[in-house]
Nucleic acid binder design. Structure first.
Length: 305
DNA sequence: TTCCAGGGGTAGA
DNA sequence: TCTACCCATGGA
């Protein structure tokens, strides 16, 4: 079946999906020819569905008066059995969340207005970086980006999904991302032999078990009233999450106050601003100070230019 | 072989 | 708060 979602007035679907590398990580996949974002999703009632999200090219165009209509997203849903309204609404809510359709970026766009390098960001309606449908999935994925290569990250995440996630009944080779419970019930030996995350095995397993036991409650993180400094402190209580990972997860949660400094950031900034010379992290992050609470987004979109 | 990749934990200062 | 050392894994 097919459902439609309205997009923000200024919106570029392809750039929104591909500005952040998450679309390359299972259970997401991207069809470049048809510009379709695919994802296997597990619904609250346990059903596994296959989502194919694309943009209706006939929408969002200017009329003769120069007014732009809102664009439309097409969400094609495949399921082995009939879906009720609750499930359809859950899918719509999840798609809005992963594409950040509800984010208010006006303040950021106002800042871009005064910055030549990022002025195109406004008319392209960028800044809605892709995220997974749950914070659990994104914490695990961020752990899999640390101290490794992007290719290994992709392989690690693929194994987590294939070995631990549930199959999509209509295409059993495809799996959803596992729930905390599905991860927690596997032992360390299985992780070492089959999931193979290196020393990250214990971090991921511990994280999932802490959620299942109730020691860790993820909903505390998705709280608009918590200040960013406190949010960072609490994210770092998760073993395996340090400064880089905490800043990345804050970005996932819509907080761009802090830049996630990693080898990619260092390489980009030193080549662009310091003639390839090594400089201190603080010297590099200071370049983005004027962006206030939008630093990370400014850096990210500048890099993607 | 050695190094290191979208780092982080820990001990010791 | 800072530094040195260790941590699996696999490609270069």
């Amino acid at each position: 079946m097919r459902v439609f979602l309205e997009t923000p007035l200024r919106y570029d679907f392809v750039k929104s999906v591909t500005d952040h590398g998450w679309y390359m990580l299972s259970p997401f996949s991207w069809n470049d020819k048809s510009s379709t974002l695919n994802r296997i999703e597990r619904l609250d009632n346990g059903k596994i569905v296959f989502l194919q999200i694309s943009y209706d090219l006939s929408s969002g165009v200017q009329n003769t008066r120069g007014e732009t209509k809102r664009g439309k997203l097409i969400v094609d849903i495949q399921s082995s059995d009939r879906l009720d309204n609750t499930s359809i609404n859950e899918i719509k809510t999840k798609v809005r969340y992963i594409l950040r359709l509800n984010d208010d970026l006006k303040e950021f766009y106002d800042l871009c207005q005064n910055n030549g390098a990022l002025s195109s960001v406004i008319k392209e309606g960028r800044g809605r970086l892709l995220r997974s449908s749950t914070l659990f999935e994104d914490v695990v994925k961020v752990i899999c980006t640390t101290n490794t290569t992007w290719n290994q990250t992709k392989s690690m995440v693929q194994r987590i999904v294939d070995k631990l996630g549930e199959s999509f009944p209509l295409h059993p080779a495809l799996h959803a991302f596992p729930t905390p419970e599905q991860v927690a019930r596997v032992d360390l030996d299985y992780f070492q032999k089959h999931v193979r995350l290196g020393y990250r095995n214990e971090y991921v397993l511990r994280f999932a078990r802490d959620i299942v036991s109730g020691n860790l409650k993820l909903d505390r993180y998705d709280n608009p009233y918590i200040i960013s400094a406190q949010l960072k402190k609490e994210l770092k209580l998760i073993k395996g999450i340090g400064d880089y990972s905490a800043h990345t997860l804050m970005m996932i949660l819509g907080r761009y106050d802090e830049i996630a400094v990693d080898s990619e950031f260092r390489t980009y900034v030193k080549n662009k601003y310091f003639n390839g010379k090594n400089v201190a992290d603080k010297t590099m992050t200071r370049l983005y100070e004027s962006w206030g609470k939008w630093k990370y987004l400014a850096f990210w979109l500048e890099r993607e230019e």
